[in-house]
Simulated assay, not measured.
Amino acid sequence: MVYSLHPLFQAIASAPTQQALRFRFMDSISGYFGVQRWGIYLLDTENSLASVDVKGVSEAFVEQYQQIGKSVDPVLRYVVQYHAPAHEELVLPKGAWKQSELYKRCCATYDHEHIMTGPIVGQGQLIGTVNFARIGNAPAFSQLDLASFGAVCMHLSARLAQLRHPSVVPNPLFKRLSAREVQIANLVAKGLTNAEIGAELWITQNSVKQALKRMFRKLEVSARTEMVAKLRDML
C-alpha cells in the first residue's frame, strides 16, 4: 500500500521550533518507509556531530558508527558528494553490501540488512543526515523509496533553514520612503554628515537637508537618531 506523504510534509512545514520539527519527524517517519531503525544526525559549523536523535538503535551503535563505520560508509560518501539520498544497492555493485567494511564492522552486529541515508542541507552545505535501516528479512529500498525520501529531505531541509534563519519582516515604514530616501537613511545610519551624504550620492548638501525634512515628516520623527531607531530593523 502506498501512503501519501502530504500529511508528513504538512507536519514538517508547520513545526514551530527545531525541537518540534525533530519530534514530529522522528515520531511519524517509520510508517511511511517501513523502517525499524532511524535517526537524525545534525552537524555543527565545524562539521562535527552536534546532536543525534535515534529510534531502534542504542547509544553503543551510534558510538561505534562514529568511531568505525562513518569513515568506511559508501552511502554517506555518496550523500556528502552529491547532496542526494542513496541506499547501499545504489552505490555498491550487486551482492557487495555484505562484503563491505561498513556492514562487517557495524551493520552486521545490529542486523542492519538495508540502509538508506539522505541529506539535510542549508546554505549550500551538508548540515546533517537522515538515516534509515531495515532489519531481518525486510526488502531492500526501492527507487520509489529513494525518490520519496529525497522529497522528505527537501522539506526537512527547507523548514530547518526557516527556523534557523527566520526571514526579516519588512518594516512597513519603508513603504513611505522613496528609493533615494532609503539610500539617505542608510547613510545617516552609518553616521555620515549631510555633506558626506551629498558627496556619496552626487547631490547637493541642501538637497540632502530638504530630503531629510520630508523623511522626518513621513516617519513622524524630529531627529536623525529617532529616524534611525525607527528604521533600525532594516538599516
Rank of each mutant, 00 (worst) to 15 (best):
6 H>T: 09
10 Q>W: 00
16 P>T: 02
25 F>V: 11
25 F>Y: 13
26 M>F: 07
31 G>D: 15
39 G>Q: 01
43 L>W: 00
46 E>N: 04
52 V>N: 01
54 V>N: 03
57 V>M: 12
61 F>R: 10
64 Q>M: 14
66 Q>F: 04
67 Q>I: 07
73 D>M: 10
84 A>D: 09
85 P>C: 15
85 P>F: 11
86 A>T: 14
91 V>A: 00
93 P>R: 09
95 G>H: 03
95 G>M: 02
98 K>L: 03
99 Q>P: 00
99 Q>R: 04
101 E>M: 04
104 K>W: 00
106 C>A: 14
107 C>P: 09
109 T>V: 08
109 T>E: 10
112 H>Y: 09
112 H>F: 15
115 I>L: 14
115 I>R: 10
119 P>M: 12
120 I>W: 02
126 L>P: 05
130 V>A: 08
135 I>P: 00
136 G>P: 02
137 N>V: 03
139 P>Q: 11
144 L>Q: 10
144 L>D: 13
145 D>E: 08
153 C>Y: 07
155 H>G: 11
166 P>D: 15
169 V>G: 02
174 F>N: 09
175 K>F: 15
176 R>Y: 10
177 L>Q: 02
182 V>T: 12
183 Q>Y: 05
185 A>N: 08
189 A>S: 12
194 N>I: 00
198 G>Q: 11
201 L>E: 03
202 W>F: 07
203 I>Q: 13
205 Q>G: 06
207 S>M: 14
208 V>L: 13
212 L>N: 12
213 K>N: 09
216 F>K: 01
218 K>H: 12
223 A>D: 08
224 R>K: 08
224 R>Y: 02
232 R>H: 11
233 D>W: 11
